[in-house]
């Protein structure tokens, strides 16, 4: 049993917040896909996974590569894959050529997840890989703030520098997305379609094009979240499943189709997980149950209030 000091609790909370912001970015992508295409992509986590691997392979091949470029590359790769998939398999749905589209989307994205996962197992193998932290922090000591290469102590509470960097990236990208959605024509077009497809098409916005863009952007956000987190977690090809799981929990918590909801949901999940793992009485099982907490919350929300905080009805 760990001594539960208020500092320990605060540490847990803040760590949860850090991770939660990154989850939020990933969920943002999923929400974008849902709000424009009307489907929940069950393959979202797999794009997160691919993003991480792109960074891994690039940094392996080019040791001096600026990590930010690798992250951008991860975004580009996942964007392209997403767009290709959307055009081949989802466009017909958008055109109304598919019977029972809801069922189709679920099974199809499930199949995509299965496909991507196993392709990656084939390419990468089942062994975990780790990418070392992107940057070394400078050594310094200012009492309330101490740093060395790998860790930052904020009032004596430790935070891994990898996590801090990842969160920084996530926050930056989130801000970028928000700017894009509200200030650019394309972004506003996406918003228009998400609110009312017919009305949007009547004013000249091409809903099918928007579908493709939204899906690509969504997978890109997932990919870049993975790219950011690849230094934090050991990466395996099935890490996408857990990521998908978290993304679902978040969008249900926050409300499907709501972007603020996705961010809020991400933070809530991060904190719940952190507290749950840190406070579960039996430490040998705490880690095993960490994922279960989010799932339990998720199941309960689905049963009690499926629309979550801010969502619209499915």
């Amino acid at each position: 049993m760990v001594n539960i000091t208020s500092q320990y609790l605060l540490n847990l909370l803040l760590n949860g917040l850090l991770i939660g912001l990154i989850y939020g970015l990933m969920a943002l992508g999923l929400t974008l896909i849902f709000s424009v295409l009307g489907i929940v992509s069950f393959a979202h986590g797999e794009f997160y996974m691919i993003g991480g691997y792109v960074v891994y392979y690039l940094l392996q091949a080019f040791a001096d590569l600026e990590p930010m470029l690798a992250i951008l590359a991860a975004g580009a790769v996942t964007f392209i894959i997403g767009v290709i998939f959307e055009i081949l398999f989802l466009q017909p749905m958008g055109k109304g050529d598919i019977e029972r589209p809801g069922e189709y989307a679920i099974l199809l994205t499930f199949g995509l997840a299965f496909f991507l996962q196993h392709i990656m197992i084939g390419i990468v193998g089942p062994f975990p890989t780790k990418v070392s932290r992107f940057y070394d922090f400078i050594e310094m000591d200012a009492g309330w703030l101490r740093m060395n290469k790998a860790t930052v102590w904020f009032f004596d509470m430790p935070f891994s520098s990898s996590r801090l960097i990842a969160t920084g990236i996530a926050v930056f990208l989130t801000a970028l997305m928000i700017w894009f959605m509200s200030k650019t024509w394309t972004g506003r077009g996406l918003q228009a379609v998400s609110q009312d497809r017919q009305a949007a098409s009547v004013v000249g916005i091409n809903p099918l094009r928007m579908n493709t863009l939204a899906f690509g952007l969504g997978t890109m956000l997932a990919g870049m979240s993975g790219a950011a987190l690849v230094t934090v977690f050991a990466w395996v090809p099935w890490i996408g499943m857990a990521a998908s799981g978290k993304a679902f929990v978040i969008i249900v918590l926050g409300g499907m189709g709501s972007m603020p909801g996705a961010l809020l949901g991400g933070v809530v999940l991060g904190i719940v997980e952190s507290l749950g793992a840190g406070l579960y009485p039996d430490p040998s099982k705490a880690l095993a149950y960490k994922d279960a907490f989010g799932l339990l919350v998720f199941a309960l929300v689905l049963l009690i209030k499926p629309t979550g905080f801010f969502g619209r009805k499915l």
Binding site: I39, V40, F42, G102, E103, I106, G245, F248, V249, V252, D291, A292, L295, L296, F298, A299, L302, L303, P306, L314
Partner: peptide
């Protein structure tokens, strides 16, 4: 549909 899928996935994982 989608909520059913999500819930049963969560259940299975739990």
């Amino acid at each position: 549909s989608t909520y059913l899928a999500l819930f049963t996935i969560a259940f299975s994982e739990i």
